[in-house]
């Protein structure tokens, strides 16, 4: 079981690096969906003894949301806005990749420094979740398109989710559902806003949203 778990972790790292190096937005969305799918299997692997109905529901809900609903929403926005790819990000793709590898090293180091609670399934979880959060933040600050920023937010949220699953498998059901719902509504509203931004300005470049300043 642990080897399966580690395999998922490695795949998650690869999806993150792929996100950093891709310019086509549609591909980015697909990678994000794959990441959601991988994450959805996590709750099933951590509770080995009892794959309860609850864990099943949670994993299923997470997978449906992250692998089907979010990508659908974002793809529709993509169609409405006629944007194909990220043009000239603030930080180029090769440099982003290098930075990603640097972040990976950093999070591995950080994970080895923190005193871990004993009950963790795999020592890789903490570094990987830190890595995902940092990649998410990097995407948010280094890309111009609003859509990529939403993806960055999702990746960050995924990272936190992975951390949460690893550290507290028995978090209350209500809270988990609430988090999922919040993420859903957030993406939904962001989608609507992107639609409005596109209609108002004919672009979704957030660096050109700069009227309000001091």
């Amino acid at each position: 079981m642990t080897s399966f778990f580690d395999a998922i972790m490695v795949l998650l790292i690869l999806t993150n690096l792929a996100l950093l190096g891709t310019s086509r937005l549609r591909t980015c969305i697909h990678i994000c969906a794959l990441q959601g799918l991988l994450l959805g299997t996590l709750p099933l692997t951590t509770t080995i003894e009892l794959i309860s109905f609850r864990a099943f529901l949670l994993a299923g809900g997470g997978m449906v949301m992250k692998a089907i609903v979010f990508p659908r929403l974002l793809e529709r926005t993509l169609q409405d806005t006629h944007v194909q790819r990220e043009v000239e990000p603030f930080i180029g793709y090769s440099i982003s990749l290098l930075a990603g590898i640097g972040l990976l090293g950093f999070s591995l180091w950080l994970g080895s420094r923190l005193p871990l609670p004993s009950m963790i399934t795999s020592p890789l979880v903490i570094p990987v979740s830190f890595f995902m959060m940092m990649v998410g933040l990097l995407l948010i600050v280094s890309r111009k398109k609003a859509l990529t920023q939403v993806l960055g937010y999702l990746v960050m949220e995924n990272g936190i989710y992975a951390f949460g699953v690893a550290i507290s498998p028995e978090a209350p059901f209500l809270v988990e559902m609430g988090m999922l719902l919040d993420a859903f509504v957030a993406v939904f509203i962001m989608g609507i806003l992107m639609f409005h931004i596109n209609r108002e300005f004919d672009h979704i470049d957030t660096d050109r949203l700069s009227v309000l300043k001091d």
């Binding site: 959060m133 933040l137 948010i140 609003a146 920023q149 937010y153 960050m156 949220e157 936190i160 951390f163 949460g164 988090m179 957030a186 509203i189 962001m190 806003l193 409005h196 931004i197 108002e200 300005f201 957030t206 949203l209 700069s210 009227v211 309000l212």
Partner: peptide, 25 residues
């Protein structure tokens, strides 16, 4: 519904969502 309030809403949503995600962590 004009472009300034749109910009403000986008910034609000993005910054606060990321911030609150930190709080979740």
């Amino acid at each position: 519904r004009h472009h300034r309030s749109l910009e403000a809403t986008w910034k609000y949503l993005m910054i606060c969502s990321v911030g609150i995600a930190m709080a979740l962590l």
